[in-house]
Amino acid sequence: MASSLTIEGVSAGYGAVRVLEDVSVSVGAGQTVALLGTNGNGKSTLMKCVMGMVRPFAGRITAEIDGTRHELVGRSTEAIVDLGIAFVPEGRRLFPRLTVTENLMLGAFRKTARAAIARNLDFCFETFPRLKERRGQLAGSMSGGEQQMLALGRALMSAPRILLIDEPSVGLAPVLVRRTIDKIKELKDGFQLTVLMAEQNFTQAIRIADRGYVIVHGQIAFEGGSAEELNNNELIRKFYLGL
């Protein structure tokens, strides 16, 4: 059964600084939704709100996971992950002095994930052969692209239903960006995930997204029902692509 995520009227910030103003985003079951916008517009903050890392001033965030509705605001991060919502954060946040395998195994800490650990590990190594080659290597000693693969693999080890990815392309060479985005699509199909992805790289993100939101100064400036709609929108060309 598929899972979905609904963000309704969320306002949030840090101290007196308001970053998000009445933001509503919905990610339907089995969809890949792109959250588009340049740096400093609130993409990361919105993701942190979903993950319980930033507490919104107002609004509701609900996740429907395999037919059960869960209110997310007020829950701890670990409790949210335990529901089946995984997050690949900005900067990847790997455990640098643990090996690739140890990082992946930590991903499966969640009780529900432990039963499927062998299958998920196989899947990770199949999808990212490089991780298999480097499984005994310390995570901190790998290249940026390899670290991004490990971060994705580790998130998948928790056998999530919903996956949030913050800026998968940041710091990667253009050829790797393309490959990473392809891999996300592959993982999404393989695990039947529901994906919310924040991305600056509009053209890459839109390749795999079913729908998209453009966020400008903490507000949703445009909601596109399809990739074409996003591509051909006047607002996007003006505010976002600078054309």
Binding site: M51, R93, L98, L106, R110, A155, S158
Partner: peptide
């Protein structure tokens, strides 16, 4: 699982929360 989490906890507590621990 607890043992591996113990090895990780000093490296990044926030990331450990993202592992549901």
């Amino acid at each position: 699982f607890i043992g591996r989490a113990i090895q990780a906890v000093a490296q990044d507590q926030g990331a450990l929360r993202l592992m549901a621990a």
